[in-house]
Design a protein around this nucleic acid. Structure first.
Lengths: 240, 240
DNA sequence: CCGTTAGTGCGCACACTGTACGCATGAAGG
DNA sequence: CCTTCATGCGTACAGTGTGCGCACTAACGG
């Protein structure tokens, strides 16, 4: 600040970016900033600066910081792909959707804690609608399809968010994933008596590619959830 | 402040509370404050005031606000009950645990966004250990038990957190749950063409006790997850 | 008894936050 | 040309987390 009290009058605002800000521009810039620096580095002033604008200018286009976040969250929901299902073969479509949601969350790690804030943005609605279509193809009625979608998305979101939290911890620890695993293992080893089961699991994971382990864990749970839904879909299709 | 420059010298510190603060006291007070006023109302100053202390005094016992939250989160994890499993009958124990986790999250709605921060507090470890014991009783080996636990807890946490987010939205809207549902329904109705599946679900839910609906939704997904795990446990018990 | 040491509480200060308010500017339309 | 209106932004306010250094108190060795 106080860089130049008055750079005369000309070239006041050479062109800046665009004559005016747009809500869309703001949301896009916020998304960039979030992806680059994370949630607690997003401030209205920084966001304004990135757009060549003052902090309070943003409030002409966005009521709140909270509302801004709502908008951004809806945008990232828009990245989720739900394939159209053909015939009764719903399971591949469900799997693809689940993986797409997980990928979205891992791409935007800051989103976990605020996923609930999405409310009912258009992209969330579109995602729900398409997902429901998939499950109705599976044979569920409207009510049960809603429950099934809820179950599946809850699992996916729950595990993906916990993955990002784990990865954040790794990053905070400042070391690579493998190295941290060793540290953790030692911490567990010291308390083998107290936590034998945890230790057994840890020992078995040792020397395995952590990313691969995470992928497999995700898939394992997803298959169990889909198994449960498939079983139910089968009984539901034969009367009752 | 500036209430009394010098109330003489006596009764300087009549008794205050205790001679000194304790980490445990601080954590307990933070939990109270969080339950009463929610996450974004928790400030070090307010917390200090509640303990008859200054804000910065807390830093003698707690490194960070983040660390404080970690401690509180571990405390609420301690509220989860995992029944001991007798014999091979693991499913009731798993159900009870799942309901206990959900109840804990609904009791402390602020916990959702920071659940990942728990790291590896003692209560989290105890919960994991007991849960693993349950699943090993089901016939899983160490690795698969870990995956199964992850799947189940991810589902439970995912759905419970989304429930709290929904309830927060209801509260923000300032009306009762029923009334908001009607508003939402109208919003959907206006876009029937765009979202027929969502609308069908909404229409079916109409005039039903919302709390009961939430309870049933939770149970539905839980049963599907457990079905999937049970099926897998059955195959795993007969020689892989 | 005194002197030293260690632990604790806390006032102050700093950099930073979200955002309300009101003025300035510039385009649109009569 | 004058009015109206949307938009940008400087200023300000209340509040945040937390580093620093002083004050005090209790323990303990001499």
């Amino acid at each position: 600040m106080t860089e130049e009290p008055l750079p005369s009058v000309w070239a006041r605002r050479p062109k800046e970016q665009q004559p005016g800000l747009t809500t869309e521009q703001i949301v896009r810039a916020a998304l960039e900033l979030l992806d680059e620096e994370g949630m607690e580095q997003l401030s209205m002033r920084k966001l304004g600066a990135r757009l060549g604008a003052g902090a309070t200018s943003l409030y002409r286009h966005v009521k709140n910081k909270d509302e801004l976040i709502e908008l951004v969250v809806d945008v990232v929901y828009g990245e989720v792909e739900v394939p159209d299902v053909v015939g009764r073969d719903w399971r591949p479509a469900a799997e693809k959707t689940a993986h797409s949601v997980r990928a979205m969350i891992l791409r935007h790690p800051w989103v976990g804690p605020v996923l609930g804030q999405a409310g009912l943005g258009p992209n969330v609605m579109r995602l729900s609608e398409k997902m429901l279509r998939v499950l109705i193809a599976a044979g569920f009625d409207a009510v049960e399809a809603d429950q099934a979608m809820n179950a599946m998305l809850s699992y996916v979101i729950g595990i993906a968010v916990s993955e990002t939290a784990y990865l954040a911890m790794v990053k905070r620890s400042g070391s690579v994933e493998k190295h941290l695993a060793v540290l953790l293992q030692h911490a567990i080893w010291e308390r083998t008596g107290e936590f034998p089961m945890i230790r057994a699991g840890f020992d078995a994971m040792k020397d395995r590619n952590p990313k691969k382990v995470r992928d497999e864990n995700f898939d394992y749970g997803l298959q169990r959830v889909l198994d449960g839904l498939a079983a139910r879909a089968a009984t539901v299709r034969f009367g009752q």
